[in-house]
């Protein structure tokens, strides 16, 4: 008995690594996805390591050089406080990327947990979870985010911790779609023969869930998760632009674009608000290309063509 479990586990591991190898091979062939991945790595390195090489890091205020256009010293110019826009762009990127990733992890976690519970236990648990998801989906996302932002603004969270609030908000709005998807997957998986086998073998629920069901939805989670990072970054930028997300002095790509709300900055100092917008665009398009490539690589049947 002992030996057979070891053996099956070994086989499972072997098969798994083989699957991921195949996925990887297919992904590497996809030029669009690799371009996306390359760009993402570049943006990550740029934002995470970039500020260490900048002489203007940590929000150095320079009263003499305010509102300078791009020059050799300041590649993207300076803002109203004389801070270097390029450095700020990198620091903002750290925040925006963190929010995107954090919100994705949280909403994938909540969505998977609730989706699995609903699909696996059905009955009243299913009813409660799915009706809640229905209600959440009935209310338009943006107003919902605005309301939550207003409530949470009153908690007087210090500016540097606002990003965690934004993550929580985005995951509250984001989990319902994923939960539906996971639930439908679980519902179809539990009708498969191997699940009937686990039933007749008398396996415990925990084992059925973690060993037999969850591994089968991992590919789905990877694809949806990747794509949702892009969505989260976009939502964060909208919230921050309207002053309801990450607030200054902490920079995020969204609140940097806020500079466009001043007429003079908008008309005469485009270096203040165009670079962050371009950064959002490049990041999100790269994430979407990679996510799309991953979907094609993981399951050619799902291929969007």
């Amino acid at each position: 008995m002992e030996e057979t479990t070891v053996q099956t586990e070994h086989m499972a591991k072997y098969r798994k690594s083989n699957l991921w190898k195949q996925v990887f091979r297919r992904l590497v062939k996809n030029k669009m996805a690799m371009t996306g991945l390359g760009f993402l790595i570049f943006i990550f390195v740029f934002c995470m390591i970039g500020p260490f090489f900048s002489p203007y890091a940590n929000g150095g205020v320079d009263a003499i050089n305010i509102n300078q256009p791009p020059s050799a010293e300041h590649w993207l110019g300076t803002d109203a406080l004389g801070r270097d826009v390029l450095t700020r762009l990198m620091e903002a990127g750290r925040i925006s990327l963190t929010v995107g990733l954090g919100a994705m992890v949280m909403s994938v976690f909540i969505g998977t947990l609730l989706g699995v519970l609903a699909g696996f236990y059905q009955g009243i648990v299913d009813q409660i979870i799915m009706r809640t998801a229905d209600v959440l989906m009935t209310i338009p996302g943006l107003p919902l985010l605005f309301i939550m932002a207003a409530v949470m603004s009153e908690w007087k969270v210090p500016a540097e911790n606002r990003l965690y609030i934004v993550m929580v908000m985005l995951s509250i709005v984001g989990w319902s779609g994923l939960a539906r998807l996971v639930r439908s997957q679980i519902l179809s998986l539990r009708e498969r023969e191997y699940m009937h086998a686990t039933e007749s073998l008398g396996l415990r629920d925990r084992r059925k869930l973690f060993v037999h069901l969850l591994p089968n939805i991992v590919p789905l989670l990877i694809v949806v998760g990747t794509l949702s990072v892009g969505g989260a970054i976009l939502s964060e930028s909208v919230l921050s632009y309207f002053g309801l997300g990450v607030v200054p002095p902490t920079a995020s790509w969204g609140n940097m674009i806020n500079a466009a709300n001043s007429l003079i900055d908008f008309q005469n100092r485009p270096w203040l608000w165009i670079p962050p917008g371009v950064a959002i665009f490049l990041t999100v398009i790269s994430i979407n290309l990679l996510g799309d490539g991953l979907r094609d690589a993981i399951d050619p049947k799902m291929k969007s063509r």
């Binding site: 632009y241 674009i257 466009a260 908008f266 165009i274 665009f281 999100v284 398009i285 979407n288």
Partner: peptide, 22 residues
């Protein structure tokens, strides 16, 4: 299509105003 899905709506609006109106 990918480009359209990656553009923040408010940024697109601002760019259009800057370019076509200003």
């Amino acid at each position: 299509v990918f480009a359209a899905m990656a553009t923040p709506s408010f940024f697109l609006g601002l760019i259009m105003i800057k370019f076509f109106a200003v």
